[in-house]
């Protein structure tokens, strides 16, 4: 079943250039899809369009069968949670507890229910000992975890990570990636937006954007094997992949080595 269907989507900030041009995309329930692209490729614009923070110039977005319009946007936002890039600019509450509660308060959750959920999901992201802490006492990675807890508490089916790791140090980055993998296993539909191929290798499918257009879309394995497309994408190839391509070019056929390199590419 398709939880998101995007047809012929176009959007431009200025009249002369399209930030996104004719994007078509379907996402299945429970799938993890990575949107890969260089800076300015339109990937964050896509996220903002899906949750209705921007209004498309043309094309349709269906979420769970509902067409995104001004009337349905609030209904659709209840199905999608999004973690943005800057940890500081999405922390609304005065304390961790307040911030996890913010979305639930907007959705008029019962107070006792909120307290239960704050407890449950702060534990899930390992922030239960920080409930009374204020944002300036937390690291970037911790703030992003709080954002995740706030979204889990709202119980959305879909979670978008819009370069959620870009401003974190390697440790913070790895911890967020860990949660993404776990949430996907638990059945959440995940969209990660990134320019780092390392963060995309574990997803089910990859869509590559370049200058606002879809360059490629397909199963992760297929995309990673598509040398021409990846070279055209302006992205940085993973080192084992580069080696793999080089072996191919030199016509060296050693299945064992190839298999090892493939596994290394997939971060295994």
């Amino acid at each position: 079943m398709n939880i998101i269907e995007i047809t012929d989507l176009s959007f431009s900030y200025r009249e002369d250039v399209d930030a996104l041009h004719n994007v078509n995309l379907t996402i299945k329930k429970g799938e993890w899809i990575s949107v890969l692209g260089h800076n300015g490729s339109g990937k964050s614009t896509l996220a903002k369009l899906i949750i209705g923070l921007l209004k498309a110039d043309s094309g349709d977005i269906f979420v769970d069968g509902i067409l995104l319009t001004e009337e349905t946007v609030h209904e659709i936002r209840r199905k999608i949670g999004i973690v943005f890039q800057n940890p500081d600019n999405q922390f609304v509450g005065v304390t961790v507890e307040d911030d996890i509660a913010f979305g639930m308060e907007n959705l008029n959750f019962d107070r006792l229910d909120m307290i239960k959920k704050i407890d449950e999901f702060s534990k899930k992201v390992n922030m239960n000992e920080y409930l009374k802490k204020e944002p300036h006492e937390l690291s970037g990675g911790q703030k992003q975890r709080v954002a995740i807890a706030g979204i889990l508490a709202m119980d959305t089916d879909i979670i978008i990570f819009d370069e959620a790791t870009a401003m974190l140090d390697p440790k913070g980055r790895e911890s967020i990636m860990e949660y993404i993998r776990e949430l996907n296993k638990e059945g959440k539909t995940i969209i990660t937006i990134t320019h780092d191929m390392k963060e995309a290798v574990n997803s089910d499918r990859i869509i590559i954007l370049k200058d606002g257009e879809v360059l490629a879309i397909g199963e992760t394995n297929t995309i990673l094997n598509d040398k021409e497309t990846l070279n055209a994408s302006n992205l940085e190839l993973l080192l084992p992949l580069k080696l793999l391509y080089k072996l191919d070019e030199a016509n060296i056929k050693n299945e064992k080595v190839k298999d090892i390199l493939w596994q290394l590419s997939l971060n295994k």
Binding site: H38, N39, A166, M167, H195, D196, L235, E236
Partner: peptide, 8 residues
């Protein structure tokens, strides 16, 4: 270089 893509 934080926040830049690999090319940048």
């Amino acid at each position: 270089t934080s926040g830049l893509d690999p090319k940048g």
